[in-house]
Design a protein around this nucleic acid. Structure first.
Length: 590
RNA sequence: GUGCCAUUAGCGCAACUGGAUAGAGCGAUUGGCUUCGAACCAAUAGGUUGCGGGUUCAAGUCCUGCAUGGCACACCA
């Protein structure tokens, strides 16, 4: 916590003076805010080793502490043995000013900066982005910014899905429709491959594959040909890739998501052979019906369960399937490219940590085995952290993965247009001169804040209404508070004054800012932005109360007026830092 | 079948290492714009934290059993 070091050292001193052991000493925000601002439960711990009731111990500590006459704090006791700490107005004012003039807003930087490699986005080439692609870039971008704010270095890679069977499927489908005659038969003019063609081809091919085994085989062959660099397959692949990337970049930019690297699975291809050789040299590979596998199961894992009927699928106790380095037809797989990618990243950047922001469903089992394989082979050095930040699925009202009525998924473009239109209507309704950029930033704020407010690993119910709701605990409410402060500050040119806290309304703002500063650590630890979202809301809520009850610019007393204005600046700065971390814009007017 | 995750107010969600009377938001009811921006503020109602046992001074939180739901489980990504 922001005041932890200071309060804990005071408490430690008091413990020492009373000859108490101060293990387990920590200070937290009060659970009974009507009684105090902070609390410590140290007396409960001390009473385990000392034969005294906790309340007596708390009393002694409070007495010792109060005898020091600290001007910023008052200590008291309550309940069974809580040691309560309140800030005086002098204390509140002191810290408010300290934060205001600090260039980092007193955001605690890390003592051990790391190089963190982030893998998020994960769009697929030849497939337009849909609802299922929302969370990874939103969460990834926010984590990226959080890490940098805390003093870490980061590299972000969009890691496009451009290397699997999907590519073979799309090309096989386009070819059978005659679109690729120029490449395959040398007939006609070079075709302009469009996004619409790709969007149509993939689902069609995907369906066809399930019934048409010859087509499936063709697609698998094509996939292999692309991977082998055979023409014209490779050329068509490159063509499709460049068409897709343009569109994907646009989509991500609308969400304020940017990447240092625009690499894909295919970029690890030059490292595949070396990667596989490492496994072979260490005798980690096995042959499995012509496929090349690595067994990563530990003792007792992946035990086959006897089948009831011969036709049943083989199931396993404590499932932990092997890593597949090569298919029996010689093609590479998801596993192969992920391992080669780790090898490549370590060769080029050797990060301290690699984080994958990937859907829990497709990630949990997969990354566990990939990480095991990477450690077994030494592709990932022992001290490198490999982490899968798995996020929950967006479910429909039935609790299952969200599907539209026709069984499909909503396109990302449609979602963005929806929230943007809704925001635009609202701007017009309020008589504010508006442009597409502002409308987009408000709509996207609603969407992103809604998503980031949820605990990252939990599934949540996708609700269109909620995604574009602008009132209450929402992104636009935060933006609105910021815009209102900006507009107010534009009306005055008074110099900054010292913040002097007197009113409860002011106190609540400062306490909310303490919580805000505290939230970064929790977010870092949990790889989740929900605590930051909440504390940002609490600042805005406290400010709105203040704003409604107190007249700022017309305040007669100059010192008080200047203090109010500085308090506004303090809040605005918090909003700016918070929204910037979440990668949400702050419009001038809305 | 095996494993992982979830279950908290009408709804969708919070609750920091186990701490005090489980919290805001939406929705509902009510009040507040002649005053710095009403995407706002204030107030009221709303709970046996899925069920049972256990550990503890203290359990939504830890352990255990059960119920319900979701997800994953061999050459898709």
């Amino acid at each position: 916590m922001f005041l932890n070091d200071e309060l804990e050292s005071k408490l430690k001193l008091a413990c020492t003076e009373n000859n108490y052991n101060c293990d387990n000493l920590f200070v937290e925000f009060s659970n009974a805010p009507q009684l105090a601002d902070f609390q410590s439960n140290i007396a409960f711990f001390i009473s385990k080793t000392v034969k005294l009731p906790p309340i007596k111990i708390a009393e002694q500590l409070a007495c010792t502490l109060n005898s020091k006459n600290y001007e910023n704090f008052i200590f008291s006791i309550a309940g069974a043995g809580f040691l309560n700490i309140s800030l005086t107005n002098i204390g509140l004012s002191y810290y408010a000013n300290k934060i205001l003039i600090n260039k980092d807003f007193c955001v605690k930087k890390t003592n051990t900066p790391k190089l963190i490699f982030l893998d998020y986005g994960g769009a697929n080439i030849a497939k337009s982005l849909h609802m299922g692609h929302l969370r990874s870039p939103i969460i990834g971008e926010a984590l990226n910014r959080l890490y940098r704010l805390l003093g870490h270095k980061t590299i972000s890679d969009v890691h496009l899905g451009d290397w699997g069977l999907q590519m073979g499927l799309v090309i096989a489908s386009l070819k059978s429709d005659g679109i690729l005659d120029y490449y395959f038969k040398g007939k006609g003019n070079k075709p302009q491959i469009t996004l619409d063609m790709l969007n149509e081809a993939y689902p069609k091919a995907s369906l066809r594959m399930k019934e048409d085994l010859i087509f499936k085989k063709t697609a698998e062959d094509f996939t292999l040909f692309i991977q082998q660099g055979k023409q014209p397959y490779r050329k068509v692949f490159e063509e499709i890739k460049s068409v897709s990337i343009t569109k994907i970049k646009q989509n991500y930019a609308q969400l304020n998501c940017y990447f240092d690297l625009w690499l894909g699975e295919s970029d690890a291809e030059p490292f595949v052979e070396q990667t596989i050789n490492i496994f072979k040299e260490k005798n980690l590979t096995q042959d499995y019906d012509g496929a090349l596998i690595v067994n990563v199961a530990h003792e007792g894992e992946n035990q086959p369960i006897p089948k009831k009927n011969d036709n049943d699928k083989q199931l396993y106790r404590n499932p932990m399937p092997p890593v597949f380095l090569k298919k029996s037809n010689g093609a590479d797989l998801y596993d192969t490219s992920d391992l080669a990618t780790i090898y490549m990243r370590n060769l080029q950047y050797s990060p301290d940590e690699i984080q994958y922001i990937v859907d829990e469903r497709q990630g949990t089992a997969h990354f566990e085995k990939i990480f095991r394989a990477a450690k077994m082979s030494g592709i990932s050095p022992e001290n490198q952290i490999l982490l899968h930040v798995g996020y929950g699925t967006m479910n429909g009202p039935d609790g299952k993965v969200f599907k539209t009525r026709d069984g499909g998924s909503i396109k990302l473009d449609d979602i963005i247009n929806l929230v943007k239109t809704k925001a635009k209507d609202r701007l017009t309704e309020n008589g504010i001169k508006n442009d597409d950029k502002t409308a987009l930033s408000i709509g996207v704020a609603a969407l992103k804040f809604c998503d980031l407010s949820n605990t990252v690993y939990k599934n949540y119910i996708f609700d269109v209404e909620k995604f574009c709701s602008f009132e209450g605990k929402t992104g636009p409410y935060i933006q609105y508070t910021g815009a209102r402060i900006k507009s107010l500050l534009a009306k005055t040119d008074e110099l900054d004054g010292k913040i002097l806290i007197n009113l409860n309304e002011e106190k609540q703002i400062v306490l909310a800012i303490f919580k805000f500063l505290d939230s970064f650590e929790a977010c870092f630890k949990n790889h989740s932005l929900s605590t930051l979202c909440l504390s940002l809301y609490e600042i805005c809520s406290a400010f709105s109360t203040f704003y409604n009850n107190i007249k700022i610019l017309t305040q007669q007393n100059k010192t008080t007026r200047e203090s109010y204005i500085s308090l506004c600046k303090l809040v605005l700065r918090a909003i700016e830092i918070g929204l910037n971390t979440l990668a949400i814009d702050l419009p001038e007017k809305m």
